[in-house]
Simulated assay, not measured.
Amino acid sequence: MTDPNPAGGTPPAGDPSANPQTSSAETDWQAEAEKWKALSRKNEDAAKANKSAAEELAQIKLSQLTDQQRAEKAAQDAVNEANAAKAELARYRVAATKGVPVELLTGVDEATLTAQADALLAFMGQQTTPPVPDLGQGNRGGTPPQDPNAWLRRMAGR
């Protein structure tokens, strides 16, 4: 390391090393942070350029497929989508039957989902039937509400 003031004595007034509050380690960290920010921005720009190139390559590959290959790919996509829909339907059926939250079921077939639901119910210590709502809540009868006009007439003395 070189001496900032080779003549000796006190350093110049504008010199950052003259301030005892600022250390060289602090300025080194600031410079390091700026360097990493610049590298991050550079990598983000490269990723954006690579994304557009990847999309373009995918379109080129798709355009080079034969009609037979496109039909096979579309059929496979449809089969995958149908299987996903069946799995989701099974999740909702088991959740409704067992009375457990659908978000907690992760299986793909009904046997696995049922086993998961039973394990959840055993863990929670509940019965295996869903809870029955109390349909008797709310107004259970009694005196009907008074007519506001009749109340006003009584108050007016009529």
Score class of each variant (00 low, 15 high):
Met1Arg: 01
Thr2Trp: 03
Asn5Ala: 05
Ala7Asp: 01
Ala7Tyr: 00
Ala7Cys: 00
Gly8Leu: 01
Thr10Ser: 04
Thr10Met: 07
Pro12Tyr: 04
Pro12Met: 00
Ala13Asn: 01
Pro16Ser: 01
Asn19Pro: 00
Asn19Asp: 11
Thr22Val: 13
Thr22Met: 03
Thr22Lys: 10
Ser23Met: 02
Ser24Pro: 07
Ser24Thr: 01
Ser24Asn: 03
Ala25Asn: 00
Glu26Asn: 00
Gln30Phe: 01
Ala31Val: 02
Ala33Trp: 04
Glu34Ile: 07
Glu34Met: 04
Glu34Pro: 02
Trp36Lys: 14
Lys37Cys: 00
Lys37Leu: 02
Ala38Pro: 00
Ser40Phe: 03
Lys42Met: 06
Asp45Ile: 13
Ala47Ile: 07
Ala49Lys: 11
Ala49Trp: 07
Asn50Thr: 08
Lys51Gln: 07
Lys51Arg: 14
Ser52Pro: 06
Glu56Gly: 12
Ala58Trp: 09
Ile60Thr: 12
Ile60Glu: 10
Ile60Val: 11
Lys61Pro: 03
Leu62Pro: 03
Leu62Met: 12
Gln64Thr: 09
Gln64Arg: 13
Leu65Met: 14
Thr66Ser: 14
Asp67Arg: 11
Gln68Glu: 14
Gln68Ser: 09
Gln68Val: 04
Gln68Arg: 15
Gln69Thr: 09
Arg70Met: 06
Ala71Gly: 04
Lys73Asn: 14
Asp77Arg: 14
Ala78Gly: 07
Val79Lys: 15
Val79Trp: 08
Val79Ser: 11
Asn80Lys: 15
Asn83Met: 07
Ala84Gly: 10
Ala85Gly: 14
Ala87Met: 11
Ala87Cys: 13
Ala87Glu: 00
Ala87Val: 14
Leu89Ser: 15
Ala90Phe: 14
Arg91Leu: 09
Tyr92His: 08
Tyr92Arg: 12
Tyr92Gly: 02
Tyr92Lys: 11
Tyr92Ile: 08
Val94His: 06
Val94Gly: 06
Ala96Ile: 08
Ala96Gly: 13
Ala96Asp: 13
Thr97His: 15
Gly99Trp: 09
Gly99Cys: 08
Gly99His: 07
Pro101Val: 12
Val102Tyr: 03
Leu104Lys: 13
Leu104Gln: 13
Leu104His: 10
Leu104Phe: 11
Gly107Trp: 08
Gly107Thr: 08
Val108Leu: 08
Val108Trp: 07
Asp109Val: 15
Glu110Thr: 01
Thr112Gln: 14
Thr112Met: 05
Leu113Arg: 05
Leu113Ser: 04
Leu113Ala: 10
Leu113Gly: 05
Thr114Tyr: 02
Ala115Met: 06
Ala115Pro: 02
Ala115Ile: 06
Asp118Cys: 07
Asp118Val: 10
Ala119Asp: 06
Leu120Asp: 02
Ala122Pro: 05
Met124Thr: 03
Met124Tyr: 13
Gly125Met: 12
Gln126Met: 09
Gln126Leu: 11
Gln126Gly: 03
Gln127Cys: 04
Thr128Glu: 06
Thr128Val: 04
Thr129Tyr: 09
Asp134His: 06
Leu135Asn: 02
Gln137Val: 15
Gln137Pro: 04
Gly138Glu: 05
Asn139His: 09
Asn139Thr: 06
Asn139Val: 12
Arg140Pro: 02
Gly141Thr: 02
Pro144Ala: 09
Pro144Trp: 12
Pro145His: 12
Pro145Gly: 10
Pro148Ser: 12
Asn149Asp: 03
Ala150Phe: 07
Ala150His: 10
Ala150Leu: 10
Trp151Ser: 15
Leu152Ile: 14
Arg154His: 15
Arg154Ser: 14
Met155Trp: 13
Met155Thr: 09
Gly157Pro: 03
Gly157Met: 05
Arg158Phe: 13
